[in-house]
Design a protein around this nucleic acid. Sequence first.
DNA 1: TTGTATGCGTTATCAG
DNA 2: CTGATAACGCATACAA
Lengths: 304, 304
Amino acid sequence: MKKATIKDIAKAAGVSIATVSYILNDVKTQSISDETRVKVMKAAQQLKYVANRTAQSLKIKKTGLIGILLFQEQEGHYWSDFKYAKTVGKIEQICGQLGYHVIFMQVRSQLSDYKMIMERNLDGVFLINADQEQFGTISNYFGFGIPVFVIDSYIDDSLFHKIIPDFAQSFRACEAALGGRPEFLVTDAYNNEKLAGFIREQSGLEDERICVYDNPEQLNDFLSRFEGKPGIVINEFLALEVLKKTARIAAVCTCHCPQVLPGTVGRITFDLNDYQEIVHKMDRYIQDADYVDPEKFYYLSGTP
Amino acid sequence: MKKATIKDIAKAAGVSIATVSYILNDVKTQSISDETRVKVMKAAQQLKYVANRTAQSLKIKKTGLIGILLFQEQEGHYWSDFKYAKTVGKIEQICGQLGYHVIFMQVRSQLSDYKMIMERNLDGVFLINADQEQFGTISNYFGFGIPVFVIDSYIDDSLFHKIIPDFAQSFRACEAALGGRPEFLVTDAYNNEKLAGFIREQSGLEDERICVYDNPEQLNDFLSRFEGKPGIVINEFLALEVLKKTARIAAVCTCHCPQVLPGTVGRITFDLNDYQEIVHKMDRYIQDADYVDPEKFYYLSGTP
DNA sequence: TTGTATGCGTTATCAG
DNA sequence: CTGATAACGCATACAA
């Protein structure tokens, strides 16, 4: 049993291919008699016709495909796969509502990975946790006018829309939750060095008071210098580790999952629905080829 | 700056499009003079040519696209998005190594969702946590000869390859870890009723001793009947909840993330590398149209 | 060793 | 209102 094409429908309904296409696509500029319309629709149903998006894409030069490229950290922790799970899920959901399909890819800095964007003629791309270095070398593969949004990545290119959590505001919320100035900061690692620097800077803490998590021993060493003092942790899973040593912390829940933490610690969360606006924005770029967004920077604002 | 086609390369190199195609695809049955080969390769590089997989797909009738359809539970818990994050990540990784790209889709039982498989001409599909009901009604959209593997789903159709954790073995391991027979079982909900029944059955416990988690109150009520008794929990995140009440548990870590649990509880884990064999099997189906696998049932075997 | 021509399934332009 | 027909970018049988 082979897949039916519009040609098959045309034959079955005794009309031309063009007519079938008009009817299936509900082309407004063409007027079709009700008679042929039902005839064709019936045939389509009978033959269980489904459109061939591959052929369609080739013709109309739009694939309806959106890429989510998730940059993997070289040596990730156990929560690496959870870190952006909710983000990816949410973006996929919204894309789906808008009629797009999503190609999900984890990139391990292979050049071949990026080629996918061009090869598959994606309509838009989300890059998550992208590193400047590996990125810069291949950015000449982009620039073909498709919208690129970068999440948790500080890329030196004004073409891209940047989306990062509002750390400044989150830190203020943490301070409120702690009831005083934090004495230390423990943060999860990010591929993007500039983002990492930004976090450190926003915290307002000196470097000796900041720990970028690498392994349990290192964390323990660090924490032993702050017994009983209040501190901030970026990433709730990391906070889970920190809690083994000290309880006076507030956590910035960058993984959108405060539930893993006990209610006794201050938890700053971000609203996943913020992605609604972002994906819709991308949609607008896709629909309207020469739309330009005055706002290229999106902050996810945290709430306690 | 438009994308270059093989036609552009042909023109630039002064050869025919066929020749270009032969060279780019490294077609063995054609012998090409070194001279034209370098000429063409150079032109391709200069024009920054990337293949158009859409056109390719249309021609060769293979898209190189594999679908991962993740069935969402109607009312999920906070860990729903993590439940299959590692599985999806692993499958994508292996697919990537084999040269496939992955379309990731969460399905909320819309008929339109399944159509994607046909519309996009996927080469293969993984269905995760699929419910029999919603599934049966639309399975006639399948059967076009593409391999379908179902994960954590017990579908009444011998066409599909089924992959589920080896619960029987896991339960035995739990018993060993607990040092005695468990008195109760708390399990996460699954879309697939038959799988849920299978789990209950394999536990060998009476229904009164089994709790399918719905909400914290219900869990507390249940657990209060088993103060100080040993039990088993399916799903490590759920185990985190159970631990708030009782400590004598062993957990079957179906989310591949034992790390969220303290080392003091027995943890049964599964090896993500098992998916290697599975994805390679799918690849074989795709490559060799009439390959049949004698083994249609794959168990992921748990290890303490 | 290279080129010509056809078609994959669709959309869209132009005649009828 | 409907129908030929030319692309879209590529792979390949067949000719040269």
